[in-house]
């Protein structure tokens, strides 16, 4: 009889400690989750900024290699479209 009571008490104690532990873990996970959400938010903002910058740089690159600008630069450095007699062909260099 006395041994039975001891077993019950031990089980109750284990359950209570487990419940407490689970509670603590749950709180810890929630804190971590919120913390990660803040991190994510920050990283997402940074990613958006980088993507926006990349788009702008892409525009700038396309602006720099635009036919109009290349034509101006070519003129400045004495280049121009290839005229007859200026094209040398290797086998298979014909552009489709």
């Amino acid at each position: 009889m006395k041994e039975d009571s001891k077993g019950i008490a031990l089980a109750l104690a284990t359950i209570m400690i487990s419940a407490l532990l689970l509670g603590l873990i749950s709180v810890w996970l929630n804190i971590e989750r919120v913390d990660k959400a803040y991190d994510l938010r920050r990283m997402e903002k940074k990613l958006n900024e980088q993507e926006a910058l990349e788009s702008k740089l892409e525009v700038e690159k396309n602006n720099l290699i635009s036919p109009i600008r290349l034509r101006e630069l070519a003129k400045k450095y004495g280049f121009g479209p290839a005229s007859q007699g200026q094209i040398r062909r290797d086998r298979g260099d014909l552009k489709k």
Binding site: P81, A82, G85, L94
Partner: peptide, 14 residues
């Protein structure tokens, strides 16, 4: 026409 042919490497010799 001339620049198109030159661009595609098809402009013939004079």
């Amino acid at each position: 026409m001339t620049e198109t042919l030159a661009y595609y490497g098809k402009l013939p010799e004079k």
